[in-house]
Amino acid sequence: MRRLTILYDADCALCRRARAWLGRQSQYVPLVFVAAGGEEARGLFPGLDHDASLAEITVIADTGEIYRGPKAWIICLWALRRHRSTALAMRTPGAWWAAEAFIRQVSKNRNRFA
């Protein structure tokens, strides 16, 4: 896995802030950010369900793996030098369950955080 493309909701302020934060972090795997559902996204990934990528953050590896929602977030953390160990802690079922619930809640209410 040499590159991760992150399709993010460009209309959501929280998502834009998250995108900026991710872009600033030191990365093991380079992160590329593309607005979800936009022309560039559709051009890059013609076979992808772009409506789904508007509902939930979608990360696509250059090797073809597609991660959505909480899994996409974990992959982003895994790609960062400082947070890879946090991502790896998600191998514990309890930690994963809690993280998944938290991410889904924040994502559902993301337009409330501005």
Partner: peptide, 17 residues
């Protein structure tokens, strides 16, 4: 070791080849 650890989650799907 951290540098060589694979992702901790399985992908939801794959792109078509």
């Amino acid at each position: 070791r951290l540098r060589h650890e694979p992702p901790p989650v399985e992908p939801d799907s794959h792109l078509a080849p």
